[in-house]
Design a protein around this nucleic acid. Structure first.
Length: 947
RNA sequence: GGAAGGGUAGCUCAACUGGUAGAGCAGUCGACCGAUAAUCGGCUGGUUACGGGUUCGAACCCCGUCCCUUCUACCA
């Protein structure tokens, strides 16, 4: 070849790197964004326009530990929303937050402090907790920023900030005002060794060996059906328990209405036992020769669930009735089918008691010892010490059916995490929010449950089943226990009068304390005397002054903290009102934040704090189990970011349907990375062909563009429109898939492949080339904006390389989301091209059949499609279409010659005949041409261009 | 145990809400060597978790089973 024709071509030129090298280059871009205050600029621009506000209110992650994959999923989804809404013309400020109070932090600090804690005041311990939380806020903030999430990271909200704490206290005050916060008893895990209530997370399960007793309760109110069957012999209900010490608190015996019970005659006594447990009972009590004298259903004695018949048995050693109640949790797995019920010592017992209006008897003090006045026999004695004595006593009075000394080992008995001692269930005073006014002791008042359910109906739930889920939970939940026996949190700002026992829980006092909290932090509650915390002149009803007041020592449940974030953040901190457009969290928050927030919102302001509530699933590993450190191939997110870059993880979040659980695995990340490369290379090719393009000078008007370019623009407007809609509907995976599809098929496989000849070989400023460049510039400019919320880094990078037109902002994130591209819509053109592309596919198949590798190739055989000449046999509309496009066919098929023949094809659409192209190969464009004379080296087109 | 969600090619998603299960990627074979740690083409993947049922027709509707996930209740 005498001339280096390659140098005469317009090959792609760009500095845009082929490899993303994301992990290394993202930090520099972050730095740059920081310097130009990109987030600030975005917000400023929208404010200046007076753009409408879109509030995505951030649910606060817990300020403990590094972020994990779930955090990334959640925060990146939020970022998609915020970035898109922002580009779509809204003022979408994102104020991230952290949940800072609560047990896990106090727990960690406990561990770190060790014994030192005992010498520290509450305020000092709280200070240590504050520092701990602050440390992790800093760590997590850096990790979130690394994910390229835009927001006001310098001014986040923290539930431990003074202003926030004050707002939480005020909402509590509003509940007091409403009258639905009340004090009541509730059994909790009680660690008698460390004299403290335990949260669920502080309970460990371990084996525990203890006395167990079968106890008979005389039942002389038995209906005649039973007394007749017993033939006048005394009838006893027999219970079984592994906690004899709870017998002094026994108030009821639960039976299942649906179970079959029997009267079992043993000598001159008759026992009531569930049929399925009879054998086991007789064996345990070494009773022989017993006989069944009657069968009946439980409902004979207890009626139906939720009702009861009010029949009583007699407590064996206390002068008190024990009422028979229906309960569906009574089973025939163990015991007797008659379940000892002590509402002060068990959850189920408590709820059953509540349902039937039983008292909550708790004769055990904080040390785990019986209270003298209530249980004189064993007063002052520890309940576990009393167990064998109670067993003996039962034997002495003839109420014990098994033997003294009988013991049983319970495999999973709760123990204190610290003391390692077996815990007890003990009713303690707690604060509650009443779901119905009745439970607060009011005859009428605020129906919180019903009001919340009404408001749930006004919220848009995404996905829609979220509504069913939360409705079910709200319908069934018990009163909200808002008190915790802890130090690290917001105090329940109530005073107790030592003189008369009255609790001073009022809005006025609470708001007064809130003002102090706002100024000094909640520590003020723990540091000051009551007299310095109440408004001047405060007295109790009984006339006593602050000197007689004691502070409540309990703090608020952290769900109350975060449940008031709309007040603390949206209202108090930001002055945006009390309603967010969107809450977006994992589906576990139906029970958590979504619920506590709407309960607080409805409870104190009468409305939901969110208009739309969107949930996502959880991150799973390749086997569908939750993704945790125990998973195969587990990689901490920090390492993933360091290895492949945050952009890949963002793209992963966009690729999956987050409404269900989503999978994270090596293979998925590999696929996502492949998709990323494809997108990146597509962008790069477009940029490479725009190196000499100045949009302000070289743009070809739409009407003058080549049809193939109009087709591309049609496809672009279609996909971008679809992406915009998908963003609006929070369907990010639709964005991802349609975007990848466009890049791969429409752009890479079709348009770019087909246009290379024109772009490379035609004259630099020819219409053919400028038309293609115009299409590419418009495509790129639109696509890069469309994908910017997801590919935050790459879109910015492309934007930098994109030849600028007037009025284009310096950052893609300051640009608007592409909306009105309808000028490019041409459905008729698209329909024609669909047909043409179908023919193209047929031709490609035909070419494939005759294709031969270069080294084996003999004359008359074909390797590259440019070496071919095709003849297409078609009829009817297809024929007409192909004839109309005869000038474009060779280009479209990337062959040197294409001929259309009128005839009936054997195939469905067309028949294709392939031959070797005639003539000579043009050394410049590689197309074949028939040489008219030997004067020219190149084909006429190339000769013209070169000339 | 209860409530809710899910199970479509190796992977990620489709399937106009009952009408012959489609894409991209991966895999595989091949081309190109002027997007080159790129690019293009052909081909191969599914009894739609399983078992019943309703229907002319079911991935979609009904019943049952299994597995996974979240929340919740716990074992007296």
């Amino acid at each position: 070849m005498s001339t280096d024709y390659k140098a005469t071509l317009n090959l792609p030129v760009t500095e845009f790197p082929m490899r993303g090298n994301l992990a290394n280059r993202e930090p520099a871009q972050l730095e740059k964004w920081d310097q130009q205050d990109i987030y600030g600029q975005i917000i400023k621009a929208r404010k200046e326009q007076g753009a409408p506000r879109f509030i995505l209110h951030d649910g606060p992650p817990y300020a403990n530990g590094n972020i994990h994959h779930g955090h990334i999923l959640n925060k990146v989804l939020k970022d998609f929303v915020v970035k898109h809404r922002s580009m779509a013309g809204f003022l979408a400020e994102y104020v991230p937050g952290w949940d800072c109070h609560g047990l896990p932090i106090e727990h960690q600090v406990d561990k770190e402090l060790g014994k030192k804690k005992h010498d520290m005041s509450k305020v000092e311990v709280r200070q240590a907790c504050r520092e701990y939380a602050e440390k992790y806020v800093g760590i997590q903030r850096d990790e979130f920023k690394r994910m390229m999430i835009f927001g006001d990271w310098e001014n986040p909200y923290k539930t431990m900030s003074y202003q926030y704490e004050a707002a939480t206290v005020r909402e509590l005050g509003r509940f007091f005002e409403k009258g639905i916060a009340y004090r009541g008893l509730k059994p909790v895990h009680w660690d008698w060794a460390s004299r403290t209530a335990l949260a669920e997370a502080e309970v460990e399960y371990d084996a525990h060996t203890t006395e167990h007793v079968y106890v008979k309760f005389a039942f002389d109110e038995a209906p005649s059906e039973l007394t007749d069957a017993a033939g006048g012999l005394p009838i006893f209900a027999v219970i079984w328990t592994t906690t004899p010490w709870t017998l002094p608190a026994n108030l009821a015996i639960a039976l299942n209405p649906d179970l079959n019970y029997q009267l079992v005659k043993n000598g001159d006594e008759v026992y009531i036992i569930a049929e399925g447990l009879r054998e086991a009972f007789l064996e345990a009590c070494r009773i022989e020769g017993a006989e069944v004298v009657h069968n009946f259903e439980g409902r004979l004695l207890v009626g139906e669930l939720g009702e009861g018949k009010g029949l009583n048995a007699q407590h064996p050693f206390i002068d008190r009735k024990s009422v028979l109640l229906p309960a569906d949790y009574v089973t025939t797995e163990q015991g007797t089918g008659c379940v000892h019920t002590a509402p002060g010592h068990g959850q189920e017992d408590f709820h059953l008691g509540q349902e039937h209006g039983l008292d909550v008897v708790n004769p055990v003090d904080f040390r785990g010892c019986f209270i003298e006045e209530q249980v004189p026999q064993w007063g002052g004695m520890h309940v576990f010490k009393a167990n064998p004595l109670i067993q003996e006593h039962l034997a002495e009075i003839g109420a014990l059916l098994n033997k003294v000394g009988d013991k049983i080992t319970i495999d999973r008995y709760p123990h204190g995490w610290r003391s390692k001692q077996p815990v007890i269930f003990r009713a303690t005073t707690q604060w509650f929010i009443a779901m119905e006014p009745e439970s607060a002791g009011l005859n009428e008042g605020f129906q919180l449950r019903q009001e919340v359910l009404n408001e749930i109906d006004n919220v848009e739930w995404v996905p829609s089943w979220g509504k069913d889920r939360i409705v079910g939970m709200v319908e069934n939940r018990p009163d909200w226990c808002i008190s915790r026996q802890r130090s690290w949190g917001v105090p329940i700002t109530v005073f107790h009068c030592r003189k008369c026992g009255e609790a001073l829980a009022s809005k006025d006092i609470t708001f007064h304390v809130a003002d102090l909290v706002e100024e000094h932090g909640a520590d003020v509650w723990f540091a000051r005397e009551p007299a310095d915390l109440v408004p001047a002149g405060t007295t109790c009803k009984c006339g006593a002054g602050p000197d007689s007041f004691e502070k409540e020592t309990d703090i608020l449940d952290v769900w109350f903290d975060s449940g008031t974030s709309w007040s603390a953040v949206l209202e108090a901190m930001l002055d945006w009102g009390t309603v967010a457009d969107l809450y977006l969290e994992g589906s576990d928050q139906h029970r958590g934040w979504f619920q506590s927030s709407i309960m607080c919102g409805v409870g104190t302001r009468g409305h939901s704090p969110y208009k739309t509530c969107l949930t996502h699933g959880f991150v799973m590993d390749e086997s569908g189990r939750k993704y945790s450190k125990s998973s195969k191939n587990y990689e901490p997110p920090q390492r993933m970011i360091d290895q492949m870059g945050a952009e890949i993880l963002r793209l992963w979040v966009s690729a999956v349907d987050y409404r269900g659980d989503i999978t994270l695995s090596k293979e998925i990340l590999k696929r996502v990375t492949d998709a990323y490369r494809k997108i990146r290379n597509t962008f790069r090719f477009l940029l490479g062909n725009l190196s000499d393009f100045d949009p302000s000078q070289d743009m070809v008007p739409y009407g003058e563009m080549l049809e193939v370019d109009k087709w591309l623009l049609h496809r672009v407007q279609d996909v971008v429109g679809r992406c915009g809609k998908a963003f609006d509907e929070y369907q990010f995976h639709t964005v991802f898939h349609s975007f990848v599809q466009l890049a791969t098929v429409d752009l890479s496989n079709v348009h770019m492949d087909v246009s290379k000849d024109r772009l490379y070989c035609e004259g630099l400023k020819s219409l053919e080339r400028r038309s293609g460049q115009t299409a590419y510039w418009l495509t790129l400019e639109a696509l890069v904006r469309a994908i910017a919320p997801i590919l935050t880094f790459t879109s910015e990078e492309v934007w930098e390389f994109l030849p600028k037109n007037d009025g284009m902002p310096e950052s893609v994130h300051l640009a608007d989301y592409p909306t009105d591209l309808s000028a490019w819509k041409d459905d008729e053109l698209a329909a024609r091209w669909d047909q043409l592309l179908a023919v193209r596919s047929e031709v490609q198949k035909a070419l494939e059949e005759v294709r031969v590798p270069k080294k084996e190739k003999k004359p008359g055989q074909i390797g590259s499609s440019q070496e071919a000449k095709v003849a297409i046999v078609a009829t009817g509309a297809t024929l007409q279409l192909l004839q109309d496009y005869s000038d474009d066919l060779a280009m479209l098929l990337i062959v040197s010659e294409a001929e259309v023949i009128d005839g009936a094809p054997n195939g469905e659409l067309v028949d294709v005949a392939v031959e070797v192209a005639t003539g000579e190969k043009c050394p410049r464009c590689w197309n074949f041409w028939i040489v008219p004379n030997s004067g020219e080296e190149c084909c006429p087109r190339c000769t013209r261009v070169l000339g």
